[in-house]
Computed example of a mutant assay.
Amino acid sequence: MALVLALASRFNAVDRGDAWARDTGTPVWVFDHGYHAGLVLQRESLQQFGGHFAAAWLAQFPDADWFEFGWGDAGFYYDVPTFSDVTVGIAAKALFLPSDSVLHIATGHGSPWQVFTQSDGVEVPVTDAALREIVAFVEAGAAADVQLGSGFYGESAFYEGQGKYHLFQTCNSWVSQALRAGGLASAPGPSLFSAGLLWDLKRRYWNKR
C-alpha cells in the first residue's frame, strides 16, 4: 500500500498552487460518498462558462439547481452502487486493467449539503477564471451527450466518458485534477482515496457552512 501511495503521488504531481482561489467567490463542492468523490457545480456556472456538453446537460435537467460530476470505471460504477458492494476482485480489475470510463451526473435542488447529509464534504469558493477552467475540464471528461441510462440517485444519468480508467487515473484523481485545472492546490497523492482527497481539501480550504 505504501508503494501504491508513493507511485500515485509521483504521477502528475504538479501543484500549481492556489493563485486563483480566494476567500470569496463562486462556490464549488466536493463530497466523499465512501469510496468515490463527486464535484458539484452550480447551474449558473455551467450556463456562464460551459460549452456544447454543458448546454446539453442543462437542457436534459432543466430544473436542476446544481450538478454533481463523477468520472470513473464503467464496470465499477455499474457493479458497485454502494461501498458494501466493493470486492477485492472488482477493485483490482478496475485499478490494474485500463478500462472504459463513464461520466456520472447527479442533480439536485436547494443546497447540496441538504441532499448529501450522509457524505463528508468541503466547499471551495473560486474565481471566475478558475471556474472557467474547471468547467472546461469537466466537459472534457465526456465523450458524448447521449445518456447511457439512469444514474445512482435522484435525477441522474451516465454518459460515455473520455479516457481510460486505471490505477493512476481514478474517480478521485479526476476530481483532484479538475480543481488543479482551475489553479487550486489539491495534492495528487492522497486522491487515490476519497477520504484522502477530502482531508487535503479541508486542510487547505475549509469553510464552515
Rank of each mutant, 00 (worst) to 15 (best):
H109V: 10
G196W: 02
A91C: 11
F193E: 05
G161W: 08
L97Q: 02
V115E: 14
F96K: 01
D73N: 13
F168K: 07
G189M: 03
L192N: 07
V138R: 00
Q118T: 13
T170S: 08
T107L: 11
A144E: 12
G121I: 09
G189Y: 07
A195K: 13
Y159S: 07
D128G: 06
D85R: 12
K164C: 08
G163E: 08
W174G: 00
S101Q: 02
G154F: 11
C171G: 08
A92P: 01
V122N: 07
F96I: 02
G141Q: 15
V86G: 00
E123C: 05
V122S: 04
D73T: 07
S111T: 14
V135P: 01
D100N: 08
A142L: 10
I105Y: 05
D120T: 13
F168A: 09
F152D: 06
V124P: 03
F152W: 10
V88L: 15
V135E: 00
Q118Y: 09
L197M: 02
V102R: 00
S191R: 07
A187E: 14
Y78S: 15
E160G: 12
Y153C: 03
V86H: 00
A74N: 02
T127M: 00
C171A: 04
G141L: 14
V122K: 12
R132L: 15
K93D: 09
E160Y: 09
L197A: 00
G183S: 07
L197K: 04
S156F: 07
T170M: 05
A129H: 13
T170F: 11
G161P: 02
E123H: 07
Q169C: 07
A106D: 11
A91L: 15
A187T: 10
A187W: 06
F158W: 03
A195H: 13
S84D: 14
D120R: 14
A185S: 15
V146L: 11
G108Y: 06
S186W: 06
G75E: 00
L148Y: 01
E155C: 08
D100R: 13
G141V: 07
Q147G: 13
D73L: 12
Q177T: 10
V88G: 02
P112K: 13
G189A: 07
R132W: 13
Y78K: 14
T127I: 06
A144T: 06
S176C: 12
T107W: 12
R180V: 11
Y159E: 07
V115A: 14
G154H: 09
A91G: 04
D128P: 05
F83V: 15
A142C: 05
S194R: 05
P190T: 08
V86A: 05
L184T: 02
G151A: 01
L179D: 00
Q162M: 14
Y77L: 04
A181I: 08
S84H: 10
S101G: 05
V146P: 00
G196I: 10
V102A: 01
L103C: 04
Y165M: 10
L131D: 03
V126T: 09
T170L: 06
D145S: 11
G149D: 02
F96T: 01
A129S: 15
L131P: 01
L184V: 03
D145W: 09
H104T: 09
H166W: 09
P125M: 09
E133M: 15
H109Y: 13
V175R: 03
S186I: 05
D79H: 12
F96M: 08
G72A: 05
Q162G: 06
T117P: 12
Y165H: 06
I105S: 03
T170A: 01
P190V: 04
